[in-house]
Nucleic acid binder design. Structure first.
Length: 108
DNA sequence: ATTGGGGCCTCCG
DNA sequence: TCGGAGGCCCCAA
């Protein structure tokens, strides 16, 4: 069995993000101690076993575009809008206003 | 908006 | 144990 400690750390950080806000892959990576591991964060989210668990849809790219989603980008956008977030042409609007910066967390 | 180069974590041979 | 490939990325041109 693979070691999923990294994944779990990612999910733990993700749980900090409240409804109506979003964060980025890079910010999560930073909260885990390495700003350069944003891509690995994406991988971890993609492995999320439960779509209704950790709110992966609240994680977007640092330029404000939507990014990927295991359930399909449309579904990601649908969930974001359900949280009251405005999405236009593949970008989240008012990013400065709704961007959440997660608190640094020690990984296991 | 595109593109190329780079770095991080995992899986697989 | 080592090496290569690839992914929900990032950033500078």
């Amino acid at each position: 069995m693979p070691c999923m400690d990294y994944d779990k750390s990612v999910y733990r950080v993700l749980m900090q993000v409240p409804r109506g806000k979003v964060t980025s892959y890079k910010l999560i990576a930073s909260a885990l101690g390495n700003p350069r591991s944003s891509r690995a964060v994406g991988n971890a989210l993609g492995r999320n076993p439960d779509p209704d668990g950790p709110p992966c849809y609240r994680v977007i790219k640092s330029d404000g575009s939507i990014g990927g989603y295991a359930g399909g980008v449309q579904e990601k956008i649908r969930r974001l809008r359900a949280d009251g977030i405005n999405v236009k042409d593949g970008f989240v609007l008012d990013l400065e206003r709704i961007l959440f910066i997660p608190k640094p967390i020690r990984r296991l």
